[in-house]
Amino acid sequence: MQKEECFYLGKIVRKYSFKGEVLIKLDTDEPEMYTELESVFVDFNNNLIPFFIEQSGLHKSTLLRVRFEDVDTEQKADEIIGLDIYLPLSFLPELDDEQFYYHEIIGFTAEDVNFGKIGIVKGVNDSAAQALFEIDRDGKQILIPVNDDFIKKVDKKNKTLLLDTPEGLIEMYL
């Protein structure tokens, strides 16, 4: 399994018990959707390794408490603390037509209602407090906040993203 075929689910943040149980901080608004998983992929030295789940449940509503097969001691649990967890893209729930996952809109043509064609969406930077569309326009990068007020239409069939950005935002990059 390659990372490109998966989505980031969360990170193993700490041990829970002396029997090897760990707590996973999930990167989701709906943690309850992930309590019945049979396995996950753990990013171990840039390789996705399948880890099979013996038992799991929510802990304090935002953390997933997990007991993995073959992780049955504190020492084995210590070895996986801090590692990222992934699932195949097929595990993502279907969204409405106007909703999208960030990976879905890469390659879409971004247009603005006033400016016209902006460029091609190359990615979404969500490492800051405000996620940003990264749009390539003839080699120049244009950053536009991912904001519901700016997104007018997502046309998955025609691979276009129609935006209504504040006046001057796009021109600032040109």
Rank of each mutant, 00 (worst) to 15 (best):
E30C: 09
S90P: 06
E74M: 13
D84W: 02
K122D: 13
C6N: 07
T160P: 04
L48N: 04
E111H: 11
N158S: 13
N47E: 13
N158W: 07
K156T: 02
K140M: 10
F150A: 02
E79L: 11
F115R: 08
K117E: 14
K140L: 03
D27Q: 15
G20I: 02
I53T: 09
Y101F: 15
E36V: 05
V71M: 11
L132K: 08
M1I: 11
E79Q: 12
L174G: 04
M33R: 15
D149L: 06
V71D: 02
P166V: 09
I135N: 01
L174F: 15
D78T: 03
K122R: 15
P31D: 02
Y173E: 06
S90V: 14
K60Q: 14
T35W: 00
R67F: 00
L58D: 10
G139Q: 09
N47K: 15
Y86T: 07
K19H: 10
V42N: 00
D96K: 15
L87N: 10
P145N: 01
I151Q: 01
L63F: 05
I80P: 03
E4K: 13
V66C: 09
F41L: 11
F41S: 02
L37E: 03
L89E: 12
K60S: 15
V13C: 11
V154D: 05
F108I: 09
L37I: 07
E94M: 12
T109E: 12
E79Y: 08
L162P: 02
N147W: 06
I135P: 00
D126I: 05
P166C: 04
Q141N: 11
A131W: 07
I118T: 08
K156A: 05
K140H: 05
S127R: 15
Y101D: 13
D96R: 15
K11V: 11
E171A: 10
S61K: 14
F91N: 14
V66Q: 06
K11P: 01
K15Y: 00
F108V: 13
A128C: 10
D155L: 04
I24G: 00
L9T: 07
L132S: 04
E111F: 11
R67T: 00
Y101W: 12
E5K: 10
L48A: 04
L95S: 09
E79F: 10
T160W: 02
F115W: 12
Q141C: 02
A129M: 13
Y16C: 01
A110L: 08
A110H: 08
D96Y: 14
S39A: 14
T28E: 09
